[in-house]
């Protein structure tokens, strides 16, 4: 045993002390559901009676006999690939616009821009979104001005998912707020110094702003990706996965398997497959982040 220096011993104690809430919480509330769901993925479990061990059957069935699993995976990938970058870019631009000025009026506008994220899962959104993209909806009315024939956006398997992607982009409030907080944390002195050195807006943006907020960009990227893969509400309340499974999000399929078809075992297998997949993407992003994320404090986890 290596003898600990006083500082290291102190760090050890303080480290566990500071993180103790999480450690307790993890042991008390998370580890049991985590392990249970992994266990259930090897069972047949209809929730009403006890689970029965069936080995790898759920996993085999998933990859070989379940076309809807592939439909769900495809739809979810398509959604994530477009939604995450679009939403982040949009959120960043809006945050940038808002961080430029300071006024009472802007407070009001910020609140308005945040409203879409606040009414996220309500019935009203379902009704309004269908109305906007409906056959005689607003979008088609606008198109007809330019002589373009209307499209049944939500009824067409090629376009339905785009309405959900746009809905997600429209609800850009959360990443926007996080970016805004990050932009406001960038020390003003840096900008002042750069302005004196003759840097223009773009120079300041790429030399100071973006590098300074890269830790938060990383956070938003990872978080949005995970959320994208687990997206549920939009598909659940607006399209119910249709038409022809073209908007069947993975989480919706999983939920239906668990609570409509009462195949919790299978749903758990689905969950762990997604977890593994998202885990791999997360690791990849973390690995590359060493190249592009700039930490004031050098030590990464």
């Amino acid at each position: 045993m290596k003898k600990l220096t006083k500082k290291r011993k102190h760090d050890l104690i303080m480290g566990y002390l500071f993180t103790s809430p999480w450690i307790i919480g993890f042991l008390a509330f998370i580890i049991f559901p985590l392990i249970t769901s992994l266990f259930l993925s090897f069972t047949r479990y209809d929730i009403l009676s006890s689970p029965r061990w069936i080995g790898f059957q759920n996993w085999i069935r998933m990859f070989t006999q379940d076309p809807r699993f592939w439909n769900a995976t495809k739809a979810t990938f398509k959604y994530v690939i477009f939604e995450v970058p679009l939403r982040l870019i949009f959120a960043f631009i809006v945050a940038l616009i808002f961080s430029q000025r300071e006024s009472k009026v802007l407070n009001f506008y910020r609140a308005i821009y945040y409203i879409p994220s606040l009414i996220g899962g309500s019935v009203a959104i379902a009704v309004v979104w269908r109305q906007i993209w409906g056959y005689d909806g607003i979008i088609n009315a606008l198109l007809s001005i330019f002589g373009i024939k209307g499209i049944n956006w939500l009824g067409d398997t090629r376009t339905a998912i785009w309405t959900l992607i746009l809905l997600a982009v429209w609800q850009f409030g959360s990443p926007m707020l996080i970016f805004l907080a990050a932009l406001k944390q960038v020390p003003q002195e840096l900008y002042e110094a750069a302005t004196i050195d003759g840097a223009n807006f773009w120079g300041r943006l790429f030399k100071i702003t973006i590098p300074m907020v890269t830790p938060v960009i990383l956070f938003n990227l990872i978080n949005q990706m995970i959320h994208g893969f687990m997206a549920f509400t939009q598909s659940y309340i607006i399209t119910q996965g249709g038409p022809l499974d073209s908007t069947l999000f993975y989480a919706v399929y999983m939920y239906r398997k668990a609570f409509n078809d009462f195949e919790m075992g299978y749903a758990s297998a689905l969950a762990w497959f997604m977890l593994a997949l998202v885990g791999i993407f997360t690791i990849i992003i973390f690995k590359t982040s060493k190249r592009w994320v700039y930490y004031e404090a050098e030590e990464g986890v």
Partner: peptide, 20 residues
């Protein structure tokens, strides 16, 4: 500990309902 944080972030709510 950090890994458990990220792992928890990735576990879908749908399969946690019953165990919780």
């Amino acid at each position: 500990i950090f890994m458990t944080v990220i792992l928890t972030l990735m576990l879908p709510m749908q399969v946690q309902i019953v165990p919780r």
